[in-house]
Write a protein that binds this DNA or RNA. Structure first.
Lengths: 152, 152
DNA sequence: CCTAGTATGTTATTACATAACACCCTATAT
DNA sequence: ATATAGGGTGTTATGTAATAACATACTAGG
């Protein structure tokens, strides 16, 4: 059986390859490895869990290798960093141009992505009212996800 | 001359005292010290800068002392933690019931507080559409503040 | 070839945060 | 008066997150 996770991963990998091709960057082994691990994970992962996992199967993988891969993948928009708790998650609707908010479930720790296109201009305007020119926006949250609400 | 910073600090301290009184908690020396340092700072501060500064003038101040004070002050809403860069800033409109976004200037690093009351329900609704019950929201940003825009 | 640009490997260190336990203070119940 | 429970701090040690700095390798264009 082919799980949706696996399909998702194939998508992400293809996306990554395409993006790299276009921008003349290399989709190298460590970058692929990090993306695969994140894509396979149910929940956002801490950097050092990633480092351990990437090191399984022989060669040790050191922090800088993984952090560099994460930076790269974040810039491409294939991975999101969740600032609240310093974790990383594979984007689950690869290729979105839209900004997304990440809402983390307090029970199962899974992240739900929600597009917030409509609120960007509102916040930009609110910022502009104070003379602030908004360039980058971070929207995150905590709460209870659908599955956990059902279970309760 | 009495600066607006100093007035702001007096306000915050009074607020803190009042809040503690009401909830039966103690506004102790380390808590006061941390709040004073933050209120006097132009920009958000890193925890370890706070630790050093709190330790000036004799007794060494250790990380747990400061982190405990920060947790306390954050819960009271007198201090905000900026997740993006793990810094802390005194709230500059003490006693707001409103949630606020924190926008950090890329040049001078000062934080601008912007109330985002109007967008909360929108995001809550967007989350609800995916079955997510939003309990806590973090809105932060980066960009250029008014002063730096003028200077440029 | 050679060299400029991109990327990784490796060592070491810096920065951020908390666990765990001892001690103190103060309010209140006996 | 004294025991004790709760809230708070002090201290040691450690866990966790991230990066600096420098060496090495791969690949494309001159």
């Amino acid at each position: 059986m082919v799980t949706s996770k696996e399909v998702h991963m194939q998508d992400l990998i293809r996306q990554a390859e395409a993006l790299c091709q276009r921008s003349g960057m290399a989709f190298t082994a460590p970058r692929r490895r990090v993306l695969e691990i994140l894509a396979a994970s149910e929940t956002p992962m801490k950097a050092y869990d990633l480092i351990s996992k990437a090191g399984e199967g022989g060669q040790a993988t050191k922090p800088p290798t993984v952090y560099r891969a994460l930076d790269f993948l974040c810039q491409l928009g294939l991975v999101h960093r969740i600032e609240q708790d310093a974790t990383f998650v594979a984007c689950n609707h690869a290729g979105h141009a839209q900004p997304v908010a990440l809402f983390v479930c307090n029970s199962c720790l899974k992240a739900t992505e929600v597009a917030y296109g409509e609120v960007s201009p509102i916040l930009e305007k609110a910022a502009a009212a104070k003379g602030f020119n908004l360039q980058r926006l971070v929207v995150e949250g905590r709460g209870q996800c659908q599955d956990c609400a059902m279970a309760a």
